[in-house]
Design a protein around this nucleic acid. Structure first.
Length: 271
DNA sequence: AGTGCGGCCTGTCCGC
DNA sequence: TGCGGACAGGCCGCAC
């Protein structure tokens, strides 16, 4: 499942191949993604030069002079650099074809992802504008998390998974960061002390940074732009480890559903 | 304003 | 072996 580290891994993989390149054509095989792929993408992106590729949360932004393509990988999406000689497979829904004959191919079996086009500044786009700070930026820290949480009745796990609070923390890394910080996922966000939020902010930062270093986490769907898996799965301490021993205290890792999401934790290490 | 949940999808796995 | 059904997940958009 692509979370922030997987999206960052994808960005780093594709950027060298297509940055500065001119788009020659857009091929949409199936426009029925989370939202329909707009016709404007096919009519306005060709002829444009990719000035920059940026990540905001889990969104990838392909910036050109005329507008910005906004991509999201949903939960089963991936991007590859390929060529037109490579036949498209069943779930390869969109190709962005470049003048250097490279093809950026969007695959998404479950079609929870999206490929959009906007001519306004991307940061003003509805999907981007309301997002909270990047977890790896300076504005994200314990003070920020603490101050914003004071009136919140929801549990800490859904709080840090709220993209308006902080962007890019999904189900896997939320469990991992809470384990690292020693905080039980069900604890009420508004009742956690400032020192614990300092630890949590640092845990989120560290878990994400470590995952990026390992090329993300591959459980089922995720592959990097070159088709290789990410290697962070072997570093997961609690996620998908229900019934196994805690690597710290040897007690059994527990699983429960919180806000319709599988949640993993150690009731001995986390309080 | 904050919270909770439905809905979008397909592949995988389980039990019969 | 085949089949149905549950489940997984990001996250918007709506209802409360």
């Amino acid at each position: 499942m692509p979370e922030l580290p997987e999206v960052e891994t994808t960005l780093r993989g594709i950027a060298p191949h297509i940055q500065g390149q001119s788009v020659s054509r857009v091929l949409v095989r199936n426009k029925n993604l989370r939202w329909p792929v707009p016709a404007a993408l096919s009519s306005q992106l060709p002829g444009q030069t990719l000035l920059e590729i940026r990540r905001r949360g889990k969104y990838l932004l392909l910036l050109t002079e005329k507008g910005t393509a906004i991509l999201h990988l949903g939960m089963s999406g991936s991007l590859r650099i390929t060529s037109l000689q490579t036949p498209a497979e069943k779930h390869d829904h969109v190709d962005i074809i470049f003048a250097n004959d490279k093809v950026l191919r969007f695959r998404d079996p479950r079609r929870f992802g999206c490929v959009l086009w906007t001519t306004q500044p991307a940061e003003q786009h509805k999907l981007i504008a309301a997002m909270g700070p990047e977890p790896l930026s300076d504005e994200f820290n314990g003070d920020y998390l603490y101050d914003l949480s004071r009136s919140r009745k929801c549990n800490i796990k859904s709080y840090i998974m709220d993209s308006k609070v902080v962007t890019g923390v999904g189900n896997i890394y939320a469990s991992e960061a809470l384990f690292s910080a020693g905080i039980l996922p069900a604890r009420q966000a508004g009742r956690i002390s400032k020192p614990r939020y300092q630890v949590l902010a640092e845990s989120i930062r560290q878990v994400l940074t470590a995952a990026i270093k390992q090329g993300g986490t591959t459980l089922k769907d995720f592959t990097r732009e070159d088709g290789q898996p990410g290697y962070f799965k072997q570093s997961l301490k609690v996620y998908d480890r229900a019934g196994l021993d805690c690597t710290v205290c040897q007690q059994t890792i527990k699983q429960k559903v919180l806000n319709q999401r599988s949640t993993y934790y150690c009731s001995h290490c986390q309080r």
